[in-house]
Simulated scan of single mutants.
Amino acid sequence: MKIQKYRVKIKQVGSTWTSEIWRKVSKNEAAVSKGQAGFASEQEAQSWGETELKAFLSHLGDRNQRRAEKRS
Rank of each mutant, 00 (worst) to 15 (best):
G14L: 11
G14R: 08
G14K: 12
S15V: 07
T16M: 13
T16Y: 07
W17A: 01
W17V: 02
T18V: 15
T18P: 01
T18D: 03
S19I: 00
E20I: 01
E20G: 10
I21P: 00
K24D: 07
V25D: 09
N28S: 12
N28G: 14
N28P: 00
E29A: 05
E29G: 07
E29F: 09
A30T: 12
A30N: 14
A30D: 14
A31K: 14
A31C: 06
V32R: 07
S33T: 09
G35I: 02
G35M: 14
Q36T: 09
Q36M: 11
A37F: 03
G38D: 14
F39H: 01
F39P: 01
F39V: 04
A40K: 15
S41K: 15
E42Y: 15
E42G: 11
Q43F: 08
Q43Y: 15
E44L: 09
E44H: 08
A45S: 13
A45D: 01
A45E: 00
Q46K: 12
Q46G: 09
Q46I: 14
S47F: 10
W48M: 07
W48K: 02
G49I: 03
E50R: 10
E50F: 05
T51A: 08
E52M: 06
E52F: 02
L53I: 03
K54C: 10
K54P: 07
K54R: 13
K54L: 09
A55R: 05
F56Y: 13
F56M: 10
L57G: 02
L57D: 04
S58N: 08
S58W: 08
S58K: 05
S58L: 06
H59S: 06
L60M: 13
G61N: 14
D62L: 04
N64G: 02
